[in-house]
Structures are given as C-alpha cells and as structure tokens.
C-alpha cells in the first residue's frame, strides 16, 4: 500500500491511474511498423554502443588497439589494462570506501527521514508546512552554496577528510528528501489503525516501531535503494571533503583520474569498465525498485 501511494503521488499529480487492461491486440505490423522498430532499435544500439566498446577495449591488448582501432573485437583476452588500473588506483579500497559510505548514508538517512516524517505526517506537529518547505530547500540548494563553510566546519571539528564527516553531511541532505517523501506517505496513513493502536495503550514509540515501521517498509526500501545509489554516484562533496586517496570513493577516483591514464589507449576503457561494473550490478539487483521509483528523481 505504501509503495502504491508513493508511486501514485510521484507519477500522477492529477488523475488516479486508470486500470490498465490493455488488450494485446496485434494490429497488422506493416512495413512502417518494421521501419519504426528498426529506427528505435538503432537508437537503442547507439545508447548501448559506448558500453560495448568500453567492454571490448578493456580486454584488448594495446598493440591490437593501435593496429586495428577501437571497433574491432579483440583477438585475445588481455586483462593487463584492467589489472593495471585496479592495482594502480587501489580500486578494492575505493570499492570498500564507497560501500561503507553509501551503506551508512542510506541507513542513517532513512532512519532520520522516518523520525522526522513520523512527527510531520503522523504527529502533524505545528508549522509542519514550513518545516517541509525548509527541508525541500535543503535538497534544492546547490551544494556549492554550502561547500566552503562545510569545509571550514569539518576542518575545525576534525571531520575533514574522514568518512564520518561525509556520511553525516550526505545523510542529512538526503534525509531532507526522504522526509519530504515519507511525510506525504505517512500523511495518508489510515487513522483508524493509529487510533486502534492508541486505544490498546501503545506509546508513540511503540506506534512508530510496531505499526508505522512495518507498514512503510516497502517505501523505505525504495528510499534506501535510492540513497545508496545517489551516494555511490555523488561527486561534488566527496571530491572536496575526502581528498586523500585512502578515503576516495569510486566516483571521485574515476572523475579525478589524471593524465597518466590517457597515454595508453586501453587504460581509460579499463577504468570505465571498472566504474560500469558496480553500477551494472546495482541495476540488475535493484532494477524493479529503480523503475518503480524512477520518478523519485533520477535527475542527478
């Protein structure tokens, strides 16, 4: 139910979704049908093409590339470019950093969102409209307008160049969005359920833990997935606040690659592939969640 209403509010601001019972009536395909299909498939191939050539060239020996160019399929599999890149930037370390940071941010941000949304959506505290407007400000504001003070503050607090600092900052920023999202879901929470819990003598915290939490779990799963992936992809704040190589995330490590990798024609393909792989894993793991919640904002 929770996910349903999340989808509804996100997708259709005006009309409730009409029951989609489309009859699969196959009209005559005709020549025009095939032409259009070929055209769209062509566009699809263009979209996928960069992925394809990154994959084939990541395993291509450099002399092969120089002789036959990037389009040809490699005659033999050569892992050296990938191995060089992996070892050269200590990619295992970056993966670990990204997993730790994204995982912590997702957990903390969802917890913060739930607490705030509980007060706003269920508690209907006074001034909630203004509080929500402020939270909305938090995720629309460009991070450039926060970054220098955050740099100064984390430095003074000893949190500069620590994962803790980045986790706290990103968790708060993302929970602003989560609060916004969850508040409206909780705002439509069936009042009779809450009333029943109260009559049974449940405290506020018990209502949160035993009634609200289980019923909103699907929504929170969507939010957590998004927080994880947003954090994984995040670039600006981790770039500024985690300068040392030991703390870098995957995104920043790739984005900040210097000239050393541009002389060798297959090195950047290997680097791209290393960046694509985890993203692809998430896509396969979370595909349904992603497509369901895409309206949450894949604009990043």
């Amino acid at each position: 139910m929770a996910v349903d209403s999340l989808e509804k509010t996100a997708v259709s601001p005006t009309t409730p979704p009409a029951p989609v019972v489309r009859k699969v009536k196959r009209r005559k395909r005709g020549v025009s049908g095939w032409v259009v299909l070929a055209l769209l498939a062509g566009v699809g191939l263009l979209m996928l093409f960069p992925f394809w050539i990154a994959v084939i060239n990541a395993f291509k020996p450099a002399p092969d590339y120089i002789a036959n160019g990037p389009v040809s399929v490699p005659t033999e599999l050569d892992f050296s470019a990938l191995v060089d890149f992996w070892g050269g930037v200590d990619f295992n370390r970056k993966l670990l950093n990204s997993v730790v940071i994204s995982g912590s941010v997702a957990l903390i941000a969802v917890a913060l969102s739930l607490l705030s949304a509980f007060a706003i959506g269920i508690g209907r505290i006074r001034g909630r409209v203004w509080i929500l407007a402020l939270f909305m400000l938090a995720f629309t504001i460009p991070q450039e307008a926060l970054v220098y003070p955050l740099f100064v503050l984390t430095r003074d607090l000893g949190l500069y160049d620590t994962m803790t600092g980045v986790v706290i900052i990103l968790a708060v920023l993302q929970s602003a969005f989560g609060t916004y999202m969850l508040s409206s879901v909780l705002g439509t929470f069936p009042p009779e359920v809450l009333e029943a819990a109260r009559l049974d003598g449940a405290s506020r915290f018990q209502v949160l833990r035993l009634v609200v939490l289980p019923l909103t779990r699907p929504t929170m799963a969507v939010l957590m997935t998004f927080f994880f992936i947003w954090t994984w992809n995040d670039f600006f704040l981790p770039l500024v606040l985690l300068p040392s190589a030991d703390n870098q995330t995957v995104s920043v490590a790739l984005g900040a690659l210097s000239g050393q990798y541009t002389s060798d024609p297959t090195a950047l393909a290997a680097a791209s592939l290393a960046g694509i792989l985890p993203a692809l894993v998430f896509f396969i793991l979370f595909q349904r969640t992603l497509m369901r919640g895409v309206n949450l904002g894949a604009v990043k």
């Binding site: 996928l48 992925f51 670039f235 790739l254 950047l268 694509i276 993203a279």
Partner: peptide, 22 residues
C-alpha cells in the same frame, strides 16, 4: 536500453566519453 546510461555515475560516463572523444 535507453535507461542504461542513467545508472552510471556521471564521473564514469565522463571518463568513457573523454576516451571516445580523444
């Protein structure tokens, strides 16, 4: 297939295209 580029961290997309534009 159209959605696939959306899953990439922008930094990765950047590296990939930088390489293709070389």
């Amino acid at each position: 297939t159209y959605y696939l580029p959306q899953i990439l961290p922008i930094a990765v997309a950047g590296v990939l295209w930088k390489w293709m534009y070389q």
